[in-house]
C-alpha cells in the first residue's frame, strides 16, 4: 500500500527545550524501510532526546511525527510500541532489584484478562530468549536472577533481548556498545546485522564511528540540536567520514562535498 519512496519514520520540525536548554532545534530526521541509520554526535548533541521523542517518552511539542506515512497524533510509549518501535535506552531502563523475567516483560506483562501474571509462561519465554536471542548460556543466568547482580554486558544483553523479542519494525539502540568488551561489542553488531537481514530498520546511536560504520547504511551527524551532515555509506569511506567528524568537532560546521 505504502508508496515505495515513503519513509518508515519521518520526524519534522522537532524542537525540544529543557528549561532554557535547547536540546533540539527544528530537527528533521528520517528512517527508511530496511535501513540502518547511524546517529552520531557529541555528548549533549540531542541524540537521546530525539529518539525519546520518537518513542513517546517526551512529547513532540510543535513538531510532527509520521510513521509509515501516517501522522501520529496521540503519542505515548504504548502507542510507539503498538506501531512496532522497540528501544534499548542508553540508561538501559531496567528495574535493577527485580527478577530478570519481570524486566523482560516490563510495562507489558504477560497476563490473563484480569491482569494476573502468567508467571510460568513468562519465565519459560525468558529462558528461551536468554538462549536463542542473546545466546547467554553463562552459568547462573536464569529468569529468576536479580538484574542488579548481572555484569554490565549481561544487563545490556537483557535490554537488547527485550527489544528484539517483540516483533518490531524499528529497533532503536542508544549507545548499545557503551562499556562492553570487544567480544560483546561484536555480538551487538551482529544483532544489528541480523535486524537488517530480517528486513527491519534500526537507529544505531553511538560516539564510536568505528562501531557503526560497518553496519549502517546512512549516517546522520547531530550537533547541538540539529543535523549538520548526512552521508550515505556508499558515497563515503571510513577515513573520509572520520575526517568530517573531526571537522564538525572543530568548527561545528560540515561541508557536504
Amino acid at each position: 500500500m505504502e508508496l515505495k519512496n515513503e519513509k518508515l519514520v519521518r520526524m519534522v520540525n522537532i524542537s525540544k527545550y529543557f528549561g532554557e536548554v535547547a536540546a533540539l532545534r527544528k530537527e528533521n530526521f528520517e528512517v527508511g524501510y530496511n535501513e540502518v541509520v547511524g546517529l552520531i554526535g557529541d555528548n549533549g548533541a540531542g541524540k537521546s532526546t530525539l529518539i525519546k521523542i520518537l518513542t513517546g517518552v517526551h512529547p513532540p511539542g510543535k513538531g510532527r511525527i509520521y510513521f509509515q506515512g501516517e501522522e501520529i497524533t496521540y503519542h505515548s510509549v504504548e502507542r510507539a510500541r503498538e506501531l512496532g518501535i522497540e528501544t534499548v535506552y542508553q540508561e538501559r531502563a531496567l528495574g535493577e532489584q527485580q527478577a530478570l523475567w519481570k524486566n523482560i516483560f516490563m510495562g507489558r506483562e504477560m497476563t490473563t484478562h484480569l491482569g494476573f501474571l502468567q508467571v510460568k509462561k513468562a519465565k519459560k519465554e525468558t529462558e528461551r530468549i536468554l538462549k536463542e536471542v542473546i545466546g547467554f548460556t553463562a552459568a547462573g543466568l536464569t529468569p529468576d536472577s536479580i538484574v542488579e547482580r548481572l555484569s554490565g554486558g549481561e544487563k545490556q544483553g537483557v535490554a537488547i533481548a527485550r527489544a528484539l523479542h517483540f516483533k518490531a519494525k524499528l529497533i532503536i539502540l542508544d549507545e548499545p556498545t557503551m562499556g562492553l568488551s570487544l567480544s560483546e561489542t561484536k555480538k551487538v553488531l551482529n544483532f544489528v546485522k541480523g535486524i537488517k537481514e530480517q528486513g527491519k530498520s534500526c537507529i544505531f546511536i553511538t560516539h564510536n564511528i568505528y562501531h557503526v560504520y560497518p553496519v549502517a547504511d546512512r549516517f546522520v551527524v547531530l550537533d547541538r540540536g540539529r543535523t549538520v551532515g548526512e552521508f550515505i555509506k556508499k558515497d563515503i569511506s571510513l577515513e573520509k567520514l572520520v575526517n568530517k567528524l573531526y571537522l564538525v568537532a572543530r568548527t561545528g560546521e560540515i561541508s557536504q562535498n
Binding site: 513517546g56 535506552y89 540508561e91 531502563a93 531496567l94 528495574g95 532489584q97 516490563m106 506483562e109
Partner: peptide, 17 residues
C-alpha cells in the same frame, strides 16, 4: 509488578511505558 518497578527506578519504569 508496576508497583515494584515504579519504586525501583521511576525513570526506567516511565520509559518502559
Amino acid at each position: 509488578t508496576h508497583i515494584y518497578f515504579t519504586g525501583d527506578n521511576i525513570e526506567s519504569a516511565r520509559m518502559m511505558g
